[in-house]
């Protein structure tokens, strides 16, 4: 079947079997999006994307569900202003995530920053658990998100102290 959807802001179209996983479709047809398809079991989180604004494990999404959807890849998100400010927060906190999970972590942290209530430590770890990479200790992730929050509020309210 032909699947039309929006990927990282662009209208795209490709042919795939209806029951192919979104992660495989992205990995094969749209390599520039750099979405992995490792475990195909919803575990490793290398395939997380934003699907219609929500975090989704692309290996659990069949192609037939993607028609008309808006998909944002972690790499593309990391290049947005929001993504860059999260990355700056991570850097300030000295969070050393690896090459494999950094964009996904930035995406998740970015979503946490949008949450009205403000995420507590448990909420941060809860959300980060979607990605199972062993490269970084939980306390660093919490510090990274906290630093990103501070940076963002400093930008919004430059005169506040």
């Amino acid at each position: 079947m032909t699947i039309d959807f929006i990927l990282d802001g662009a209208d795209v179209s490709c042919r795939a079997r209806a029951t192919d996983r979104l992660s495989d479709v992205l990995a094969q047809e749209f390599p520039k999006a750099c979405v992995g398809s490792d475990c195909r079991a919803g575990r490793c989180g290398r395939c997380v994307v934003l699907m219609d604004g929500k975090l989704a494990l692309a290996c659990l999404v069949p192609a037939f569900r993607v028609r008309g959807a808006e998909i944002v890849s972690p790499r593309a998100y990391a290049r947005t202003e929001e993504g860059e400010s999260v990355a700056a927060g991570f850097e300030r906190a000295g969070v050393a995530t690896c090459e494999f999970c950094t964009p996904q972590r930035i995406l998740i942290a970015g979503l946490l920053l949008e949450e009205a209530a403000g995420a507590d430590d448990r909420r941060i770890l809860e959300a980060m658990q979607t990605v199972q990479c062993r490269c970084v200790e939980p306390s660093a992730l919490v510090e990274g998100v906290r630093a990103a929050v501070e940076l963002r509020s400093a930008r919004k309210w430059p005169h506040a102290r």
């Binding site: 770890l125 658990q129 062993r134 200790e137």
Partner: peptide, 8 residues
């Protein structure tokens, strides 16, 4: 099973 982050 890996240890969940929330269990650390």
């Amino acid at each position: 099973r890996l240890m969940p982050l929330t269990a650390v």
